[in-house]
Design a protein around this nucleic acid. Structure first.
Lengths: 251, 251
DNA sequence: CGAGCATTTGAAAGCTGTCAATTCCGGTGG
DNA sequence: CCACCGGAATTGACAGCTTTCAAATGCTCG
């Protein structure tokens, strides 16, 4: 397993959150927003392949992702790794039920990212002073539960081909929700090993399944760029039914 | 697949919630609690094998489970079924990010249950009037996310034997948190098909794996009673490491 | 340009699924 | 109280998806 610990964190100024869809502060007025700014610990740019925090450690920051991709994962005592989620702009990182407990998972940047950090006590102060933000947070957490459930059925009840088609379409939809004009090509910063650890497969089998999908010209994938070539066929394979699609549209 | 629709719902009076650990109203004063009671739609007893709601329907109640077991699951267009979670007393059912969206999963009682229902608008009124309840809800949702993550790594990165050991111990710990004096035997209302759909396995393979665990005298399981015979060995198999244990203790 | 990570491919083993049939068990009706 | 019925649990044989082990090739960054 890679160390992922080469790069360092550097603070820079950064712009406003590009994805208001998932922004927990979207419910605030400009005046309230200004007040929240006051509690913000800092905005920073972080290089690719840097850990934000690691499983087992205590960590006292809550983050809002502004740009870039962050991968959340858990490790097993035997060395196994399970990717839990890819965080995209607007996502909240590191809110957990018990503020004092050590992290239950790790977070690592896949690309260069910019994010905004809050010291945990300040974060709770914001929640106390803005009940509507707290409700928004509860709803975002409920969304995360629903998303985890999608992943559970994906890993638990589908074969490699179906799992992979679902992963591609799910990420495609989440990116498209932010940038409707991306066409059918998207950045894809993960390695095949990352995909394997996301889908409960091995690297080797992921490679073979990818080859099959490529040969049938359902997708193109190389140099960390993914193109959805035959959306409809992929949707059938992935088991995207109408209900799922509706849910995706709502996100 | 079974119909699960034989029994009907009957309203009866019921007692107070037995599990304060997960109760979202634990943060309220007696006076506030009384006010919340006012919004409560009703308390009811429901027979085993009854659906509370089904995937794809709209449903306007939020529930708090008082007693009994409820199984939450999703179905796939191809007929596959994935169990998402077993709800135990104190758990909240049916809070979701978009109040208007159809249910993303189904809920069915495994045993006779008693629960408390809130019409969704009333539920939101309670949240608005009691910000501390909203925060509690956000934290409970965060707990659910963490639990889903445990299930993801369980299904994604372990073999049948390990998954099953984990399921048994996880349920055992959740029950023990409510009733510390249960010894090492617990009710186990699920069928082997339910277990299969929980762990991403087939009924047949679950049966074989159970036989193996029984033959090694790690557990006893019959007539819907489960006994944890060799806790330590099961914990090793399940991959319950120190961190996990700590988390379990906190729940 | 070299080192190390990422990707690709082949062969063989193994865990899990599929198909089919039998046994067990709890609940129902006579 | 006993026979019967249907769902649940078992078991065997075999196929198949996925993993494991190994090795070669391709890329990318310093």
């Amino acid at each position: 397993m890679k160390s992922y610990l080469k790069k360092t964190i550097q603070m820079i100024p950064c712009s406003a959150c590009p994805n208001r869809e998932r922004d927990m502060f979207q419910v605030l007025s400009p005046e309230q927003l200004e007040q929240v700014e006051h509690y913000r610990g800092g905005q920073c740019a972080i290089a690719a392949k840097t850990h934000l925090y690691q499983q087992g450690e205590k960590h006292n920051n809550v983050y809002t992702l502004f740009s870039g991709w962050v991968m959340l994962y858990k490790t097993l005592s035997n060395g196994g790794r399970q990717v839990l989620r890819y965080a995209l702009p607007g996502d909240i990182l590191n809110f957990q039920s018990d503020p004092e407990a050590p992290m239950t998972h790790s977070a690592v940047t896949l690309t260069n990212t910019t994010l905004c950090s809050f010291a945990r006590p300040n974060f709770y102060t914001i929640l106390e002073e803005n009940p509507n933000v707290t409700l928004q947070l509860a709803q975002i957490m409920a969304e995360d539960v629903a998303l985890s459930h999608e992943y559970l059925i994906n890993i638990g009840r589908k074969n490699a081909r179906e799992r992979m088609a679902f992963l591609f379409l799910e990420l495609y939809h989440r990116l498209k929700a932010q940038a409707p004009d991306i066409g059918n090509t998207m950045p894809f910063p993960m390695t095949q090993e990352d995909i394997a650890d996301t889908l409960g497969l091995t690297l080797v089998h992921v490679n073979r399944t990818l080859r099959s999908l490529r040969q049938e010209e359902l997708i193109q994938l190389s140099h960390h760029k993914l193109t959805i070539v035959k959306y409809e066929e992929l949707a059938v394979i992935a088991g995207f039914n109408l209900n799922e699609l509706r849910r995706q549209a709502l996100l």
